[in-house]
Design a protein around this nucleic acid. Structure first.
Lengths: 124, 124
DNA sequence: GCTTGACTTCGAGCCGACTCGAAGTGTGCA
DNA sequence: TGCACACTTCGAGTCGGCTCGAAGTCAAGC
C-alpha cells in the first residue's frame, strides 16, 4: 500500500502526470484517487494495477469512451460480469481482425522490400 | 488503362472521394491525377496501384508525412532505392514491434476474459 | 433545353487524445 | 525563514487525419 505521488505513478506507468489527471477527470479511474491532506494525489497499488489495465486497453486501440464504459461496469460492482465479458470479447475480436489485417499488409510491404533488396544487390 | 472517376476510384480503394482529394493535395500521389477536359479527375490503374500502396502504409500506421516522403522518393525516380529501402525497413521494424506489443497486451486481456468466463460458468 | 446529380476548389470544422500554461498552493531542505 | 520545485485546477491549445459545406461547373438522360 505504498502511496505514490503523481510523478512516481507517471514514472511507473509510463504515462505523463498530465495524462493521469486527464484519465481521472475523464472517468477512466475506478474511483477518485486518494488525496494527501494537502490535496495532492496519492496512488495506491490498486490504482496502478487499474492504470495498467487501461494501458493495455488503450494500447490495443480501445477508444477512451469504451474504457470509460468498462470502468463504469467495474465500478458498479458485482452482477454485470456478463456485460464486461461481452465488452472485452468484442474488443478482442476487433483487435484480432486488426492484427490479421496489419500482418497481411506488412507481408505485402515485405514483398516490396524484397524487390528493392534484389535491385540493390544487382547494382552493388 | 480504364480511367475511373473519383467516385469509382473511391469505391475501388475503399477511401472516400474527400480523402482521395486530400491525399492528392497533401502530396501523397506520385503525380497530379489526370483530368478530363471538364477538369474532373480520371484515375488510371497506376494511380489505383499506388493508392493501394498508400493504404497499406497507412493501415500499418505510417504517418502521412512519411508516406509523403516515400512518395517524393518514388517520384524522384531511379537512384534513391537505398533510401526507399531504408524507409520501408524502418517502418517494418516499428510495425513488428507494435504487433508484438499489441499481441502481448491482447494475451493479458485474454487472461482477464478467461477469468470472467470462469466466474460466469460457476454462477450459471 | 432542362434537370439532377457528380464533379471542382477552398477554407473551415471536427474528433480523439492528449498537452500545455497560468495562477495559485504545498513540501522539503539548507 | 527562504528557496526551489512539485503539486493543484481550469480552460485552452495542439496535432493528426480526415470530413464537410459553400459556391460554382459539368454531364447524361428525358
Amino acid at each position: 500500500m505504498t502511496a505514490l505521488t503523481i510523478s512516481e505513478a507517471a514514472a511507473r506507468s509510463g504515462l505523463s502526470a498530465h495524462t493521469l489527471r486527464y484519465y481521472e477527470r475523464d472517468g477512466l479511474m475506478l474511483a477518485s484517487v486518494d488525496r494527501a491532506v494537502s490535496g495532492h494525489r496519492r496512488y495506491t497499488d490498486r490504482d496502478l494495477t487499474w492504470i495498467e489495465m487501461i494501458t493495455r486497453l488503450r494500447a490495443t486501440g480501445m477508444p477512451i469512451r469504451d474504457v470509460r464504459r468498462y470502468a463504469a461496469l467495474v465500478r458498479a460492482g458485482d452482477g454485470n460480469e456478463a456485460e464486461r465479458l461481452e465488452l472485452l470479447m468484442a474488443h478482442r475480436e476487433r483487435v484480432e481482425a486488426q492484427l490479421a489485417q496489419v500482418t497481411s499488409h506488412l507481408r505485402a510491404i515485405d514483398h516490396k522490400i524484397g524487390i528493392y533488396e534484389g535491385k540493390l544487390d544487382q547494382t552493388a
